[in-house]
Computed example of a mutant assay.
Amino acid sequence: MPTILITGASRGIGRRLAELYSAGGWEVISACRNPAGCDPVGEPLALDVGDAGSIAAAAKALSGRSIDVLWNNAGIYIDKGQALKDLRAEDWLESFRINTIAPIMLCRALLENVAASGLRKLAFTTSKMGSVALNSGGAYEYRSSKAALNMAVSSLAQELAPRGIRTVVLHPGWVRTDMGGAGADIDTTQSAAGMKSVVDGLAAGQTGQFFNYDGKELPW
């Protein structure tokens, strides 16, 4: 039975991913800050992705255990709708800490768990708002933190390819969640199912690409 660890699994896209993988017979590790309060799918894991001590504790708890897919899904969007004049440096730094730095630090901590697995995949929920080519302006903090994540994962892909570890960044679409809002285009099922199909379908040696949830490759 393959194993997946999903961050931000308490609600929204992360929870739906957990439900779909669990229904498919996978062993699911649902990571959230307070498992007791989130009714996790599968096995709960207490993890605050922005806290180095929490990452270290999670890595210790999972020591020696293989993880076929590590899905970095947790993220924040602090500056939604904010104008340039309203931006705060501390919020911008927090966006980078959670959206950019935390996923790479977690990958580093659990790298050997993934390397020991049969599938060896790293998935990252990003956003097409992090695409320089598709930039329509605004959302300085969120866009730049996701663009930086994309670049970091591109570097990660090159470094880990010789070990047979595949990476992919995925735009989930505009999804009806707390972050996306009620007026978004698609629901969590369509988003999660589409991204799952992309990750499940990654061929041997296929790594370092940026996909839409429907499988269309996006420009960086």
Rank of each mutant, 00 (worst) to 15 (best):
W92C: 13
A116M: 01
P35F: 09
V41N: 09
N212D: 15
E19C: 11
I76T: 07
A31P: 00
T100S: 12
A147Q: 07
E27F: 03
R88D: 11
M179P: 00
M151N: 12
I186S: 04
S191D: 02
A133F: 10
L160T: 12
G53N: 11
A83H: 11
A139F: 14
L106W: 03
V132A: 15
G8H: 04
A133H: 13
Q190I: 03
D79Y: 01
L87N: 09
N135D: 15
R120C: 04
T7L: 09
R11A: 14
A161T: 06
G81W: 00
Q190D: 14
F211R: 01
G118F: 04
P103I: 13
R65S: 05
D86R: 01
V114D: 05
N135V: 05
A161S: 14
A182K: 10
G130V: 08
A31G: 11
H171D: 08
V49Q: 10
V175F: 05
G75C: 03
E112K: 00
V153N: 01
A89W: 12
G14D: 11
Y77K: 02
G208S: 10
P35N: 13
A89M: 13
L202N: 09
L17H: 09
F211I: 10
T126Y: 01
E43C: 11
A23G: 10
I29E: 11
I78G: 02
